[in-house]
């Protein structure tokens, strides 16, 4: 009983963080067809911006939304400078990998210069601890588990029920036809990047609330998000969400039964096996498209 509760809780918690990160990667890939390697850096930057605003004395309820907006703005800017001008290049995917990596390194070193290497911590979403059955958990973790599905649901509603969401899905499917119905493709690309950056910032705020922050804190979540999208298929939004939770549970079970030591290796083995059977991920249909 205790084992099950622990795995369930751990899986939901990790899955929430992974989903938050992976959805942003998938959103950018489906709309623009590029892979944003600075996504982990967005997460880190978001956490630092939030920390700075809190340090200025703002209440987290004001500081966090401001940080999310600011990170979204950086996402927009990044798209306009290192992605948009390259659209149409023959080796777009490759060149954007290098420009987003370079931009990521720029931001990472900028953060290091501004805030220094000393670790920092954000206030938790909810302070305090509680017991679920026999395991002790923090309210911050519970808040993450509850808030994440709400945010993902809101994103889903935005994409499927609003006019702008419809436009984003359209751009993902056919850029020329989108222009011919009068969509502002440039703005929609920027919007996709901005939303992805905002989601990464939220993940950063989640993480900064229970772990020490550092300029390289985004690297590991980016890696996990990569594995999630490989696993779930990158060409949709729902695939990575399911895959994120699945991998969360898998990791929780592995570390419970085999220990943290072997979890990465096991995860990789499962990943390779999956790809040999289903090269485009397990939850994917053909083609590129949101939703």
């Amino acid at each position: 009983m205790g084992a099950l509760a622990e795995i369930l809780f751990g899986g939901l918690f990790q899955g929430s963080l992974y989903a938050m990160m992976a959805v942003g990667l998938a959103l950018v890939w489906t709309t623009i067809g590029v892979f944003n390697f600075s996504h982990g850096v967005f997460m880190m930057l978001g956490a630092y911006l939030a920390w700075q605003l809190v340090a200025f004395g703002l209440h987290p309820a004001i500081a966090f939304p401001l940080a999310i907006l600011a990170t979204a703005g950086v996402g927009w800017l990044l798209q306009a400078t290192v992605v948009r001008p390259l659209i149409g290049r023959a080796n777009l995917v490759l060149v954007v990998v290098i420009t987003t990596l370079a931009a990521g390194s720029l931001i990472e070193n900028g953060v290091l210069t501004i805030w220094g290497p000393r670790s920092k911590q954000l206030p938790p979403l909810l302070a305090g601890n509680t017991m679920i059955g026999s395991i002790g958990v923090s309210l911050h973790q519970i808040a993450i588990i509850v808030v994440t599905p709400l945010i993902l649901w809101a994103l889903w509603m935005f994409l499927t029920r609003t006019r702008i969401g419809l436009a984003l899905r359209a751009v993902a499917q056919n850029e020329d036809a989108s222009q011919l119905v009068g969509l502002n493709v440039t703005a929609l690309y920027g919007l996709a990047f901005a939303i992805a950056a905002a989601l990464a910032c939220i993940a950063g705020i989640f993480m900064g609330g229970y772990r020490f922050m550092s300029p390289v804190m985004g690297a590991d979540p980016l890696l996990k998000a990569l594995i999630v999208v490989v696993f779930g298929g990158i060409s949709s939004i729902s695939g990575p969400i399911f895959a994120a939770y699945l991998i969360g549970f898998f990791e929780a079970a592995c570390s419970y039964y085999f220990g943290l030591y072997w979890t990465p290796a096991l995860l990789f083995a499962v990943l390779i096996l999956t790809l040999m059977v289903r090269p485009e991920g397990i939850f994917t249909s053909r083609g590129r498209g949101l939703a």
Binding site: F268, I272, L275, M276, E280
Partner: peptide, 28 residues
């Protein structure tokens, strides 16, 4: 072996994952 049937972006993801996991294994 895992990238034999893959294309473009998926090769990037898998090989990148491979690199990170080699590192994880060395750390662990």
């Amino acid at each position: 072996i895992p990238i034999l049937r893959l294309k473009g972006i998926y090769i990037i993801l898998v090989t990148f994952g491979f690199a990170q996991l080699v590192m994880q294994i060395i750390i662990s």
